[in-house]
Design a protein around this nucleic acid. Structure first.
Lengths: 130, 130
DNA sequence: CTATCTGCAAAGTCTTTGCACTTTT
DNA sequence: AAAAGTGCAAAGACTTTGCAGATAG
């Protein structure tokens, strides 16, 4: 059976994701790590992220530019408001929304429902700059 | 200046997107069209979709599997509940949610905010089958 | 020691671009 | 006829896979 091993590469990936405020693409994480002088393959980053996703610690999300973004999954389910320009992220919680979606899904006979809610906009700083 | 011309290819793309209930990827649209016997290039589909997006009629959204999904931007903004297994889609409207998101965005100083809300689950038929 | 992991290079997707040809206007 | 559009093939970006060598336990 598969007993996962701990390697410095996996640790580095996890740390990089933490430092990025828990929201980064594989490519970004790769750059972060090698820019510190450490050397590892891009392949390893993808594999480490896949492992984190499978373990449930991390969540994968497709972004608008074709990259997959990764972030930590907190237990208290929250969503993000993301600046399209600078990437600044605000977490938020939507009271009542979780319940509304579950109800809606049930009404249509759907089960095992997950939801993806992300808001994209221009934050205050970037709005002024333009 | 660029005056857009009307071609049967663009019409076909628009129609295919309409027939797919306004939620499909470029690849899917391409398949839909050629399966009717018409012949056109994948390139053209991408270009037609890009034009629709630029004109504001259509909205592009990154999906979890790396493809970009396209859908019509209706004024009465609605969302989708999609079966992970068979792809069946139910449209829904979330009273109050639109207002809640706008308010939230404003509170954080964000402007030009768009949102992406999709629910993924297993529909009744597929749930029984498994 | 040995199952697992790493990393290179090659392959696979989806999407975009260059360029000659066709079509709308 | 001329500007715009089409389609092929090649290129690009992100991600996955195969395999030999390295490593954790």
């Amino acid at each position: 059976m598969s007993t996962k091993r701990s390697t410095w590469q996996k640790v580095a990936v996890r740390q990089a994701l933490e430092e990025s405020n828990g929201f980064a693409s594989a490519q970004e994480i790769f750059q972060m790590i090698i820019s510190t002088g450490l050397k590892l393959g891009l392949t390893t980053v993808y594999r480490a992220l896949t492992e984190l996703v499978e373990s449930g610690d991390v969540d994968a999300l497709a972004s608008e530019d074709g990259e997959t973004k990764y972030r930590f999954c907190s237990n208290d389910h929250h969503h993000h408001l993301i600046c399209r320009q600078c990437g600044e992220t605000v977490e938020f919680d939507l009271a009542g929304f979780e319940a509304a979606t579950s109800e809606l899904a049930a009404k249509h006979g759907f089960t095992s429902v997950t939801h993806s809610i992300e808001l994209f906009g221009i934050c205050e700083k970037c709005g002024v700059a333009s």
